[in-house]
């Protein structure tokens, strides 16, 4: 749940990057942190295990600044994608305001994308939330691999698998190269703030 302090005019929202393991969630945050660190003036916190996998979560907080008289603070989290860390994923989802689902565009990852989205729905249900009411967007990552001849899913197939019943905004992306990383972030921030603005006025 977003933290809204009307007296101090402070809004703090929590956005979680969710998706299958090795899909590029951490790479999204690393790109934002590396590219804009001089402006967001923040530190990314990350805990990695052997082989550079996310062990617990990544955390990148930053201030958007003063918008229409409100100080807006954003907290970005990732979850560990590996199946065995389900308890951690559920914990990170507590109090989530917006979600970026980072799907892996490789053909060999088709099933893991679907399983991960299903897992997200189950974990949200434990907090009495669901993907029909929560602000969220999809990012179809690793599109740069198409240039290397690696079999990738067409966007239509990804849409069919993951977004058919939701019709949420989606972004073909390359987190490694930064393509559409910021477009994804801007969209989820805008949608999330829009979802809580009823509390403001």
């Amino acid at each position: 749940m977003a933290f809204v302090n009307l007296k101090n005019k402070l809004i703090q929202v929590k956005i979680v990057y969710y998706g299958p393991g090795r899909g590029g969630k951490t790479t999204n945050l690393e790109y934002i942190n590396r590219k804009f660190q001089h402006r967001i003036n923040s530190e990314m916190v990350t805990v990695k295990t052997h082989g550079d996998r996310t062990l617990f979560f990544d955390f990148l907080p930053f201030d958007v600044g003063l918008v229409n008289g409100y100080q807006i603070k954003i907290q970005l989290y990732t979850v560990p994608g590996q199946v065995k860390y389900d308890a951690t994923r559920r914990l990170v989802l507590r109090g989530v305001d917006g979600i970026v689902f980072v799907a892996d565009g490789m053909v060999v990852r088709r099933d893991t994308n679907i399983q991960s989205l299903r897992n997200l729905q189950e974990n949200l249900a434990s907090y009495k939330k669901n993907l029909r009411t929560l602000p969220w967007v999809l990012q179809y990552n690793k599109m740069d691999l198409r240039e290397q001849g690696i079999p990738m899913m067409p966007i239509e197939m990804l849409e069919q698998d993951l977004n058919l019943e939701f019709r949420r905004p989606y972004f073909p992306a390359s987190a490694l190269e930064g393509t559409n990383v910021v477009a994804t972030l801007k969209k989820i921030i805008t949608l999330t703030i829009a979802s809580i603005r009823e509390e403001l006025f």
Partner: peptide
């Protein structure tokens, strides 16, 4: 940041 990519 780079401009959004509309298509793959």
């Amino acid at each position: 940041d780079v401009q959004p990519v509309e298509a793959p």
